[in-house]
């Protein structure tokens, strides 16, 4: 059966690039369709009915028309604009980090509604508290989960023994946590403290909003950041470019004021 000529979708805009004289090539992640690249005809003109509706980090309800090579956006209506998030430089940079990861992990034509929902919930958490990195850590963990890459946290991935309440080791390459007795030849192997393991297990049974209530010290935050961003980068298979700007802002850590 031929696919429908037009369809509706609800999607979060991940980014766009200029196309031709006044068009935009928009990348979005749709609840029911997965990742979509579509053309916004004339969307760069200030009087276009699409202008303002296709900004990154915006949830949009759209009408689409199947095109020969790419779909065309015929109508767009903002559902959630995350306006407060977009007035905070740190929050924007965190939102763009989420966008890059969803773009990297999302597949075209394969729906993954939990991934769509995960991004929206995380953006809400970032908007509520842009200073906390906990939403990003919880997002990275759940991203692995909804992508079918959930690391093993309860048994050693080598000997399958239940993990004792001790420090262990972790490697994305073997799929999670290892006991101290098992020594596979693995360049990605790294230490995993008991406290970090407990936080990962907490992420496993909590929503993003619940995980964001957790308060941890800087040492544990650094360990989780290194472990989760390395694991996500391992599966992505390329550098996460928005990370360097995020790191830069973190180092500068100056008070921010919106114009």
């Amino acid at each position: 059966m031929a696919p429908p000529k037009t369809y509706r979708c609800e999607a979060i805009i991940l980014g766009y690039s200029p196309l031709g004289e006044a068009d935009l090539l928009v990348t979005m992640y749709a609840r029911e369709q997965g990742k979509i690249r579509a053309v916004g005809k004339g969307a760069r003109r200030s009087t276009s009915k699409l202008v303002g509706h296709l900004e990154p980090l915006t949830v949009v309800r759209m009408s689409m028309v199947n095109g020969r090579s790419m779909d065309i956006i015929s109508q767009a209506e903002v559902v959630e604009s995350f306006a407060a998030l977009k007035e905070d430089l740190t929050a924007i940079s965190k939102g763009l980090y989420l966008s890059e990861l969803v773009d990297g992990f999302g597949s075209e034509d394969i729906a993954n509604p939990p991934l769509f929902q995960l991004m929206i919930q995380t953006l809400r958490a970032v908007q509520a508290d842009s200073a906390s990195d906990m939403p990003l850590r919880a997002f990275e963990f759940h991203l692995l989960q909804v992508s079918g890459l959930m690391p093993e946290l309860y048994h050693c991935v080598e000997c399958r023994q239940e993990l004792e309440p001790n420090a262990h080791r972790f490697s994305p390459n073997v799929g999670g946590t290892l006991c101290l007795e098992c020594n596979p030849d693995d360049a990605h192997l790294r230490p995993l403290s008991l406290r970090a393991l407990k936080v990962l297990r907490l992420f496993d049974r909590s929503s993003i909003a619940e995980a964001c209530k957790l308060s941890i010290d800087d040492g544990l935050a650094d360990e989780l950041k290194s472990l989760l961003s390395t694991t996500v980068g391992y599966w992505l298979g390329k550098e996460i470019r928005s990370n360097s700007f995020l790191e830069r802002l973190h180092k500068e850590s100056l008070p921010e004021v919106y114009i």
Partner: peptide, 24 residues
Amino acid sequence: TLEGEATAMYIRRHQSREDLRITH
């Protein structure tokens, strides 16, 4: 745009003259 606004915020954050009027 989102990136244009982010750039404006970065400029606002990193300029050091208190007597300078900054507008958009």
